[in-house]
Design a binder for these strands. Structure first.
Length: 104
DNA sequence: GCCTTGACAATTC
DNA sequence: AGAATTGCCAAGG
């Protein structure tokens, strides 16, 4: 499978109401230190749940209107925020885990 | 094949 | 806390 497909597969695996970080996508796709590849993967990704991909610590990396839309979409899915950060401790998704509850 | 560009991340100052 | 710095990997020019 192509690297791109691997990344997109991970992104697509994130269910509604959950979020994943760029770094985690990369890690799950087999490129542990390449968060930027997630950016690259999202670029062609029209059909991907792009709004469920957030920055480290739950930061909304998009600026302006795009960021607001992302936040809106996430909120609509039931994702809660703390300031301008998604509560990844609550909504974080880790591929392979059915119950995204972090544990140190 | 070298240089630039990315919706990033961790570190350092 | 915020800016700058470096690492990362693939694509496009």
């Amino acid at each position: 499978m192509s690297t791109l497909a691997a990344f997109r597969r991970i992104i697509r695996s994130v269910p509604r109401g959950r979020v994943i970080t760029y770094g985690q996508v990369a890690e799950a796709a087999g490129h542990p230190r390449s968060a930027r590849l997630t950016v690259w993967a999202l670029q062609g990704g029209h059909d991907l749940p792009w709004h469920r991909v957030v920055g480290a610590g739950g930061r909304i990396s998009l600026r302006g209107a795009d960021g607001e839309e992302q936040r809106l979409r996430l909120t609509m899915e039931g994702v809660s925020f703390r300031g301008n950060r998604v509560r990844i401790d609550v909504h974080g998704w880790i591929p392979g885990r059915r119950r995204g509850h972090r544990r140190t």
